[in-house]
């Protein structure tokens, strides 16, 4: 184990997989000479050269489309989108090509492809650069959508994504890059794709979260524990496939749940998870499931207004109190 930031954990995963497998290469805007817009690929260009760390034009359809084509030939590209907000420019290639080609041609094409993208608000980038549209991408069968909440998971999940034969959208939250945690140093440390994980045990209430809401939920759980409420925090880690087993197991003990996501509430992750709780564990429901999410506005530039719109630890804390007190 080594203590490191999520940025370092992601960088380490990329580096180790590049060292391990010649077929792996990176392409994206400013990934090479610049060292990555978020410095994740700093030093990669010097070590691996321009063949394997490819600076692209600012052209997302060419980045994702090109990576898809290269993956079809047996290479294992990692396409980096500077932010998930630019994924809309490559939407066709993500949802109409990457998610479909294996199925539509009866398994003839394999897409060992990772698309990395930074999601989330809170950095005063205003409405177009601050979105958390993760759920949109999780809507499409054929795509795997992964988003870690801890540095260890970031490393283990990204390594699994790179080794996977399926297209994986790997969503990173920029405001988590500086968070620190213990990360296994084993070069074959892998976390399975499509498996939720209990990040904290507790018997009184289930908090379901992913990505940035995981540390927020853990923080809320700490405060609740001071008041004698033990919250179980289940980290989804993967939005598709979505693993409900640990959520349902927990809910059957706690009978109460709060679901926290950074994105908008309507048609979101919380909507899906709460619907499944009602479908799979209706007899265990003691209180209506609560959803904590972003206010349904385009995010403003002003820092105070932006924070007002984003879900906070405080919101999760209060939502839990409500499902417990009724």
């Amino acid at each position: 184990m080594a203590r490191m930031t999520m940025r370092e954990a992601i960088s380490k995963a990329l580096w180790e997989e590049m060292e391990r497998d010649e077929r792996v290469f990176i392409m994206g805007e400013e990934v090479g000479v610049w060292g990555g817009a978020y410095a994740v690929t700093k030093g990669f260009y010097d070590r691996f050269g321009e063949k394997r760390v490819r600076d692209t034009p600012i052209a997302e359809a060419a980045i994702v489309g090109g990576a898809i084509g290269a993956a079809m030939t047996g290479a294992r590209p990692i396409a980096e989108l500077m932010t998930i907000n630019f994924a809309f420019v490559a939407m066709d290639h993500i949802v109409n090509e990457a998610a479909k080609l294996h199925y539509m041609f009866a398994g003839q094409f394999k897409l060992s492809l990772v698309i990395r993208a930074v999601s989330g608000g809170g950095r005063q980038l205003a409405a177009t650069h601050s979105q958390t549209p993760d759920a949109i991408f999780a809507h499409f069968p054929g795509l795997k959508v992964v988003s870690p909440g801890t540095p260890a998971d970031a490393k283990g999940l990204l390594k699994s994504a790179i080794r996977s034969d399926d297209p994986v959208l790997f969503i990173e939250n920029a405001t988590l890059y500086q968070t620190k945690g213990e990360v296994p140093e084993d070069e074959d440390y892998l976390e399975p794709l499509g498996k939720s994980k209990v990040q904290r045990e507790g018997d009184d209430v289930t908090i379901v979260a992913y990505s940035k809401m995981v540390p927020a939920a853990l923080e809320a759980a700490k405060r609740l524990a001071d008041e004698g409420i033990e919250a179980e925090v289940v980290d989804l880690r993967s939005l598709r496939p979505l693993d409900m087993d640990p959520v349902i197991a927990s809910f059957k003990r706690t009978n109460r749940a709060v679901i926290a996501e950074e994105g908008w509430r309507s048609y979101g992750v919380g909507s899906e998870v709460s619907a499944r709780i009602y479908e799979l564990a209706f007899d265990y429901v003691d209180a209506p499931v609560k959803r904590v999410a972003q206010a349904e506005v385009p995010l403003p530039y002003n820092a105070r207004l932006e924070q007002l719109a984003l879900p906070q630890t405080e919101d999760i804390y209060h939502a839990v109190k409500e499902v417990i007190n009724g």
Binding site: A62, G66, G69, A70, H93
Partner: peptide, 11 residues
């Protein structure tokens, strides 16, 4: 069309 560029890139 970008996918075709990618096939050639793969080669």
């Amino acid at each position: 069309i970008p996918i075709a560029a990618g096939l050639a890139l793969g080669d």
